[in-house]
């Protein structure tokens, strides 16, 4: 059955729900901005940190964990899918920094032919050395950094073609 909402939690969990799935979600307001919920006999206390109806974004705290929740309706999902399939063709070969750190070594040069899995960059973060390997086969097009420079998470380090 098709669901009306696609819900993403902390960019790690994805659910598809209808309003019918809410069932008996028994929510009771408590003191100090806390609420109590009973769902299938499980008892939890939570609080609402943020709630933005316009952008369908919510932030809820249960126990020690904070959940960022984004709701999308099915139409939005279709648009997103189309957008993604277009992008994929163009930008599939790049090496991004998976974490912030300092570049210790770059083992490839521009113009080098490389295979998927070949070591390309040694990135030091929190005193640990991490080898970043080639995400795909290709030729090195541009290297944007040199040894000793520090980079932020998600920065494109190397473009391939």
């Amino acid at each position: 059955m098709k669901k009306d909402f696609h819900i993403t939690v902390n960019e790690q969990f994805e659910f598809d729900f209808n309003e019918d799935d809410l069932g008996v979600l028994d929510i009771l307001p408590l003191k100090n901005n806390h609420l109590h919920v009973l769902h299938q006999n499980v008892s939890k206390v939570f609080s609402i940190v943020k709630s933005d109806f316009q952008s369908k974004y919510y932030e809820i705290n249960i126990g020690s964990v904070y959940y960022h929740i984004t709701l999308e309706d099915t139409l939005a999902i279709h648009i997103k899918k189309l957008g993604f399939s277009l992008k994929k063709e163009v930008f599939s070969k790049e090496l991004k920094a998976p974490m912030p750190g300092i570049i210790l070594d770059i083992t490839v040069k521009e113009g080098t032919l490389i295979k998927k899995g070949d070591p390309m960059v040694i990135l030091e973060a929190m005193k640990m050395e991490n080898t970043l390997n080639a995400p795909a086969d290709g030729i090195i097009k541009s290297i944007y950094f040199s040894k000793g420079e520090s980079v932020e998470k998600g920065t494109i380090l190397i473009d391939m073609e």
Partner: peptide
């Protein structure tokens, strides 16, 4: 649960 609460 968090997803359901948000939906509600």
């Amino acid at each position: 649960l968090a997803a359901l609460i948000a939906l509600k």
